[in-house]
């Protein structure tokens, strides 16, 4: 599938070549650990590792473009709201007349923002280095039924495909004189004529895909041969287990009093 339909960026880095499962486990574990870890510095540590991996994958610039657009507003909002209005606020950092900024809120906001940064980085790291089609393929090689594999695959493609379809419909409508650019009310008015055809074409596309799958023998109960093998190794397997086990480990540690 073309790059335009997903975030995937063609590359040859170690991460690009790693088994999709390894990257999947890495992503999910990193996110889980960031939210389980009790203190700021642990989360900073996870974020540093993720950013190092983003750099190693050679997608740092792409990452910054997307991540900043998401993270900057969230962080600023958290810092403002929590610093001024967190119910735990006691210790004053600074005061501008009647407006007082507190330390407890600042700490809470920083931790939350860093966790969200981990979530976003891990997700983008995965999306930038993994072809969407490979995810379902890797899962099916691990015994997931083709039917479920197809569900996974479609779910991953719903957003890019719908966006593409919406773009096509809007081009057709603009070319006929419907203003879709410009002021907010104008764009809002263009929204309604877009939605109906979008839903209908999605239904038609689904029906056509179902027929295409049927004629290619999707429903047959036969043994399947893998399209290609992913690069896997003992090291990757060990890494996957370690990362996967780290999550319950961290939970147990938290319960046992890790602060």
């Amino acid at each position: 599938m073309a790059g335009g339909l997903s975030l995937y960026a063609e590359g040859t880095s170690l991460l690009h070549r790693a088994h999709p499962l390894t990257k999947g486990v890495l992503t999910l574990s990193a996110i889980a650990l960031a939210f389980i870890a009790p203190s700021l510095w642990w989360v900073v540590g996870i974020l540093v590792v993720l950013l190092a991996l983003v750099t190693a994958a050679g997608v740092l610039r792409r990452f910054f473009a997307v991540a900043l657009a998401i993270l900057l507003p969230i962080t600023l909002l958290l810092l403002a709201v929590q610093g001024f209005a967190n119910p735990l606020n006691r210790t004053v950092v600074f005061a501008l007349g009647p407006i007082v900024y507190y330390r407890e809120g600042l700490a809470f906001a920083a931790l939350a923002a860093l966790r969200i940064a981990c979530l976003v980085s891990a997700t983008f790291l995965f999306s930038f280095t993994t072809r969407p089609a490979d995810i379902a393929e890797a899962l099916m090689q691990r015994g997931l039924s083709p039917r479920m594999g197809y569900v996974v695959q479609s779910a991953l493609q719903i957003i890019p495909q719908t966006l593409e379809m919406a773009g096509r419909i809007q081009d057709a409508q603009r070319a006929r004189g419907l203003e879709t650019q410009g002021s907010l009310p104008r764009r809002a008015r263009a929204y309604l004529p877009l939605m109906l055809p979008l839903v209908l074409s999605s239904l038609v596309a689904t029906q056509e895909r179902a027929m295409a799958l049927e004629v290619r023998g999707f429903g047959l109960k036969v043994k399947r041969i893998a399209r290609y093998e992913f690069f896997d190794s003992t090291l990757q397997r060990a890494l996957r287990w370690a990362l996967a086990l780290a999550v319950p480990g961290a939970i147990v540690a938290r319960v046992a009093g890790w602060r």
């Binding site: 603009r174 203003e179 650019q181």
Partner: peptide, 14 residues
Amino acid sequence: ATVAAMARIVGYSF
């Protein structure tokens, strides 16, 4: 001009 404005002058079939 926007595409929609051009559509007054140009009839386009894909």
